[in-house]
Write a protein that binds this DNA or RNA. Structure first.
Lengths: 340, 340
DNA sequence: TTGTATGCGTTATCAT
DNA sequence: ATGATAACGCATACAA
């Protein structure tokens, strides 16, 4: 055993007086093993502080012990929340986290991801919205033969491959909250076309209005793309409506911040003259003035669950069933009764 | 060649009618190669779409072609900015990005990182503040034999191992900006003890005040820990001073947001009654009301430069010299002349 | 300039 | 239940 480098399986085998294969069996928890030899080998492993070399395992198994995070999500807090949740469960395992952002707009995207997966052969891959909604991407993972879990605003895959929140339902609650407060003309700043989250959140709005017997108009739904600037533009449009809306539901916090800016520029007090609800509960929601009522989804919890599905030991997992995670309305100071 | 799997170096060698070693030489840009055979091999490589297997290379070279990002930074935008910059230059290389957060408070931290480095053998490691300030960590990287670059608010290592911004100087400008506007009683919300960034930023304040011949008091410097809540507490303390400060410099944006909250609660208008300057130019700075004057440091650029140093081909790099990156004062709407 | 033999640390095959 | 031997795909030492 070379003192300079780390102990290998050979060192363990020699010191335990067994073959490499036996040590390998111990490492991989093989069933067919004499209890005594196992104990002896484990003893030596502990003494040496031996750890299997990940690169060698990866080569032999043609499978890398890493989880790949594939995303095209511009929300830093969300991406980092996911990394946090993932790493929390990966921390005490042999797995590492590989980050691989992609460009949804790139026509080469799928080919690029394929090369990535074929080269790295990750054990599992975590797909973040909005790219998680791409069925071809999911299909690619399946084809390459690596586990995958998709994160989304609603279940659009089987539980085994999905961690989802209930955006639509939570938005219904949020709108109902507004209606209870006395609002009738509730407008919405929508999310980008084609995003499932945007669809779910807007549907939640429509369902809540309909359920309450409240009429609403196409013009009440202003287009947005989840950016601050689009929130500004949308709000300007909405506040030009007459009669003016008394409440605005924004499909994310960033655009809600834009709404607050515009309101303030127009001399409108929040929440006295205009109530606002956001979505995501990013830092800005609690740090802006007034503190924003918003919807929080349990991102870290979802990521933890996803990691469990990814590294779980197969179809026996509990995780296979549980794929839905409830968002909650965080009530702060941006909602009040409309000033008649 | 097995159709199901990817082409290997053997396939290339056979089709090109050369030995594996020759192919290997082509891959690794060996000097001693006949131009013809190189062309022929490259041709076959292109036809086959061959890519060297990273796991096999890692095993043979005892060095993994990944860059590890080690950090304990709670600022999501900063961490993601760094990931962005790093990946921008890694994108067209053979390198991948491994994310490895650590816990500064954990006494086992160093041992844990050692195991990580010994197991993964990353090609290079990127150290983010504040953990980048830990000399033992840097020493560990050197000992293990992997390249490292430390990111910080000031140079505290040789250029080869450092990308730094000039926090102190930029804060001097920021304070000077306040002084020019007519402020005399300028207070500061400090950063956490022991953080180099906190030290640099506070020093910048003190130097600027001294240079302008302005007196200042210990009580003008309120302790903070970079969190929103600490910004609130610090500002309450500061606004209780009499006479009241006309301007506050906060060592980061998050605490500045807290300052704005407190000011608003006390009925103070910003910037009319109180000017505020932050640091970092995070999203909240531009989205809060009023838009916050703040200091922006070129995080993505720094990360790009760091990546270049990390994967660069040795001491010949230009990157070895260039290690300082200038921050700039972003003037928005939170600074005005003091109302006498 | 190119090829041969061998090693890297692990797992898989097929014996025993 | 355990072991000898051959992969896995690439790089290095040493020849030629």
């Amino acid at each position: 055993m070379n003192k300079a480098s780390q102990p290998t399986i050979n060192d363990v085998a020699r010191l335990a007086g067994v073959s490499k294969k036996t040590v390998s069996r111990v490492i991989n928890n093989s069933e067919l093993l004499n209890g005594d030899t196992r104990k002896r080998v484990e003893q030596v492993i502990a003494e040496l502080g031996y750890t299997p070399n990940p690169q060698a395992r990866a080569l032999a198994l043609r499978r890398n012990f890493v989880i790949a995070l594939i995303h095209d999500n511009p929300n830093a807090q969300m991406v980092l929340g996911v990394q946090h949740g993932l790493l929390e469960v990966l921390r005490d395992t042999e797995f590492e986290l590989l980050v691989h952002p992609v460009d949804r707009g790139d026509p080469e995207m799928l080919g690029e991801v394929r090369r990535f997966l074929e080269r790295q052969r990750p054990y599992g891959v975590m797909l973040l919205p909005p790219i998680s909604e791409n069925d071809q991407l999911a299909g690619l993972c399946a084809e390459i033969g690596c586990r995958y879990v998709r994160m989304g605003s609603a279940p659009f895959d089987v539980p085994q491959h999905m961690v989802a929140s209930n955006d639509r339902e939570t938005v219904r609650h949020a709108i109902a909250h507004l209606i209870e407060a006395g609002h009738r003309q509730i407008c919405v700043i929508a999310g980008p076309r084609g995003f499932r989250s945007a669809l779910e959140r807007q549907s939640g709005y429509e369902e809540a209005m309909t359920a309450a017997g409240l009429p609403f108009d196409r013009t009440w739904i202003a287009p947005g793309d989840y950016t601050f600037d689009s929130g500004i533009r949308a709000t300007e449009r909405l506040l030009d409506l007459s009669p003016r809306p008394t409440a605005i539901f924004s499909c994310n916090d960033e655009m809600a911040a834009g709404a607050i800016h515009v309101a303030r520029q127009r001399g409108l007090e929040i929440p006295a003259d205009l109530s606002v609800i956001g979505f995501d509960d990013t830092t800005i929601a609690s740090h802006i003035w007034p503190p924003l009522t918003t919807v929080r989804w349990p991102i870290v919890t979802m990521a933890r669950a996803a990691a469990l599905k990814l590294i779980g030991t197969g179809p026996g997992d509990h995780g296979d069933e549980h794929a839905l995670f409830l968002s909650t309305l965080i009530r702060r100071a941006s909602v009040a009764a409309p000033s008649s």
